[in-house]
Amino acid sequence: MISVNLLPPEYRKLEATPLARFIAIVVGAILVASELGVYAYVHYSELRSIREVRGATDAEYQNKKAQGDASLALQKEILAYEARRTAIQQVASRRILWSRKLDEFLDIIHNKGDRHEYFVWLEKLQVSPPRERGRRKRGPTSGGTFQFQGFSGTTEFSKVTNLRNAVRKDTFFRDFQRISPPAFEAVIYDDGKVPAEAGKFGFTLDLKPLGWERMPPPAKKPAKKKRRKR
């Protein structure tokens, strides 16, 4: 059925908002209003307050950091002193007084003028430092070498061994770990001087590692347990 409203518009009955739309508007308004409220709380209260806390914590951290850096600088300075101290100890400990060694050695050779035990004169003397080991190798095993060659006033080999024994027993030898067996060769002269024969010899002494007096003694290996045979 077709209905026509003949009343002029000002006299017509106003139509109410449809219910669905009304509910939608109300719900929408409530939702938006709630969200606005939540947003305002979160943004202007929570976020602001947490940022203030962060600012204060940051300021505290900067202050602590400055003091902490000063403490670390002190520690660094202490470590630098200790590194230098260690280096100085190494320098001082790894030192041989060669004037003392040479003085002692010359006394051994001279042997207070005695010629019976042995009587020698030298041709060459050389002191060499230890060879540098590679990066992967462990510490030095020798402090260098002390080599000397010379002549004995007789071709008796026993005189050379006497010299060797005298070197080993003297305080001169305390910084050495081994002395080589003597190389020996008889030499004959025809210049009219005495003795007309001499024994040419040579020795090599290996020094203990420099600073050996301050090194800890090597740890003893535990004894191996023997198994009983049944």
Binding site: D103, W121, L122, E123, V194
Partner: peptide, 24 residues
């Protein structure tokens, strides 16, 4: 650390060991 030093023994007629001591 203390630096070690040494006083030479007074030379007393100690010959030069590098001199050939053979003689007439």
């Amino acid at each position: 650390e203390q630096k070690e030093s040494y006083t030479l023994r007074t030379l007393m007629g100690r010959r030069d060991p590098f001199v050939d001591v053979r003689r007439y």
